[in-house]
């Protein structure tokens, strides 16, 4: 067995024991829960728990299912999702714990949804899935912000995966996400060959011409649509506030449209008033 593999294995071993140890040392009630409470008032009874804490005692595979008490219920009320500002004041450790709490909750909800569909039951409050998803997205943004701050301070770069705009063989631009390589770029012949794709030729020029025409048509149609919309609004409400329309449709020349035939309503204009 190679030495790197051995090292990997030993690392995995230590990792596992570390997590296991932490699991064994503390069998306490979790402080964080999947749902943020709705109000920032209401002091509650839960005492702060020190030390590494874990989720509730293992229930085996039944952790994939909701509490049997709520199985027959039509509504399972919960609070709202965690907001980014609430997550920003939490320590890394707590965010780490919360991530797994949310992950377990999501697994549970998706299992319950599947099971309910399977058994032709109504899955109560399906918006819980979205709430967990929002929380997880917010959590990831917060972690990313922290890492970015560290990297910017230490290296002057964001530490994110580098991306740049490049052209493909059809002359369309796309985001090229950089990869990690063992060889430096000048030695990596295979990569140079794969990257060295110019675009040109009659067929590509024709394609690009038509592609741009398509994009232009979409833009033109959108403009026409908003023009029509304004005319229809003016036709239905001749006394509509033009300032509001100007703010809503900055692209449309409203003074010109007012004299259009289509913008005139089905009424006899007042003459000599």
């Amino acid at each position: 067995m190679s030495s790197t593999l051995m090292k990997c294995l030993s690392l995995a071993n230590t990792l596992r024991t570390a997590t296991l140890r932490s699991l064994l040392t503390s069998q306490q009630k979790p402080t964080l829960a999947p749902w943020g409470a709705v109000v920032p008032a209401l002091a509650s009874h839960v005492q702060a728990v020190s030390g590494i804490h874990t989720s509730a005692a293992s229930l085996g595979l039944m952790e994939f299912f909701d509490d049997p008490k709520v199985w027959s219920e039509n509504e399972v009320k919960v609070g709202r999702a965690w907001k980014p500002d609430e997550l920003r004041i939490k320590s890394n450790k707590e965010l780490h714990q919360l991530w797994y709490i949310l992950l377990k909750e999501r697994n549970m909800l998706l299992t319950m949804e599947h099971e309910c569909n399977d058994k032709m039951e109504v899955f109560p409050n399906p918006e819980r899935i979205d709430k967990v998803k929002i929380s997880m997205e917010n959590l990831e943004t917060v972690v990313r912000e922290r890492n970015k701050a560290y990297h910017l301070l230490e290296t002057g770069e964001t530490g994110e995966r580098p991306q740049r705009l490049v052209h493909n063989c059809f002359g369309l631009r796309y985001m090229y996400k950089s990869c990690e390589h063992v060889l430096p770029p000048f030695m990596n012949i295979k990569w140079i060959k794969s990257r060295n794709v110019g675009f040109g030729g009659r067929a590509v020029r024709k394609f690009l011409l038509q592609y741009r025409e398509k994009l232009y048509n979409e833009k033109r149609k959108a403009k026409n649509r908003s023009r029509n919309e304004v005319m229809m609004i003016l036709r239905r409400n001749p006394d509509f506030d033009l300032e509001v329309l100007r703010r809503q449709f900055p692209q449309v020349n409203i003074d010109k449209l007012r004299n259009e035939d289509k913008a005139r309503g089905h009424y006899v204009p007042k003459i000599g008033v």
Binding site: T31, L32, A33, P34, W35, G36, A37, V38, V39, P40, A41, L42, A43, S44, H45, V46, A48, D67, K77, V78, G79, W82, E86, I89, E105
Partner: peptide, 12 residues
């Protein structure tokens, strides 16, 4: 507050 809600004091 329900069982799975984080108490407001802990959120803040």
């Amino acid at each position: 507050e329900r069982d799975k809600d984080t108490p407001a004091a802990i959120v803040g």
